[in-house]
Design a protein around this nucleic acid. Structure first.
Lengths: 188, 188
DNA sequence: AGAACGAGTTACCAAATGGTAAAAAGTGAC
DNA sequence: GTCACTTTTTACCATTTGGTAACTCGTTCT
């Protein structure tokens, strides 16, 4: 809980009373490896915050290949926010890569906070914008070759390399697992 | 001006008085081909809206290659919003690909609107979120091969193909101009 | 018309990456 | 420990893409 509050306070000031309004609504959620936080074909029902562990977003392309779209590690929001906000079914899975401890706010709680905390909407939009921005700027760049993408991945996400399966990293970087293994060999 | 107001009203309701508050602050800006709307190394000073024409976002990578990061065509906001909001220098150029007619709001006007229009912040955050989301979801996918990226580009941006130079499309898709030319040939 | 320029195309070869398959290494259950 | 299972590595060859360079096609300027 402490981690969630600290995270939120990055984006604006709240007094103790307001913080309590959040705390009473936030619940703990433990996910085991490979469990889903939200699934394609369903309407996202909650906003999560990763206290411990790694979640990944993924989808299936037209060929049926599973593509990892993003990794979300500690101290980040985990939610398909656009679909959550619009209340429409998601096309992505959000899946625990490791054992995960999350804090979650239900849709109802999330919307209530807008009513009862002045300035919550401001904090909320800053949080969401940061999420989206980081995903786009820290993601793999299509104009770089596979080796460069992997090197930048290691710079941007040094804590992930030994914690998530190679397959996931490969599909995130847009290469086959075999190519990534070869790239690793060449780097050594 | 009409176009800008219609665009804004997609995201929430405003009365005539509120619309006037926007109109008196919005200015027209014409850009000739290759002129910059904002430049790397400078703090973005205004939010633009493309009435007519195409703007592209680009930057220079470590090798000095110019990379097109996005295309912005009619009825879209054009602004490096994260840096605009944070008031810090941008690393990207926003450049007119064609003759452009824009509507612009200065930083001062943009911030004033938050003070004088109830609900503006709500509209604003929805506009910005849509911008970011579209950029990430309509952009080239690193796990696809060059031909697929080009085909999806044509689906997502059919109006751009005959209006922007091939070089820009190539760098956007992460391929050389020669490869893209070859891909076009194979498709015919 | 001719020169100069920019944009797009084509060709050639080298390098990078994918597809298929098999081997090796790591992990957990019994 | 050993078996079953998953993950990672390696190898081989086909395909894709990049780098260099020359060529074609229009457009503009004189």
């Amino acid at each position: 809980m402490k981690e969630l509050i600290e995270y939120i306070l990055q984006f604006g000031h709240l007094n103790k009373q307001q913080i309590d309004l959040i705390c009473v609504r936030a619940g703990e959620l433990k996910l085991r490896k490979n469990e889903y936080f939200s699934e394609a074909g369903k309407v996202p029902g909650q906003v999560g915050f990763v206290v411990d562990g790694i979640v990944r977003g993924c989808y299936y392309n037209k060929d049926g290949d599973e593509i990892t779209r993003c990794f979300i590690s500690e101290n980040s929001l985990v939610v398909d926010y656009v679909n959550f906000e619009a209340n429409i079914v998601s096309s992505d899975y959000l899946q625990a890569c490791t054992e995960c401890n999350l804090m979650v706010l239900s849709r109802q709680s999330w919307e209530e906070l807008s009513q009862i905390i002045v300035g919550w909407d401001n904090i909320k939009s800053k949080m969401v914008q940061l999420c989206m921005y980081q995903k786009s700027r820290k993601g793999p760049v299509v104009s770089q070759d596979a080796t460069t993408r992997y090197l930048e991945f290691m710079e941007n996400y040094p804590s992930l390399i030994n914690r998530v399966p190679l397959t996931y990293i490969a599909s995130y970087l847009g290469v086959t697992q075999q190519s990534l293994s070869r790239i690793r060999k060449n780097i050594r």
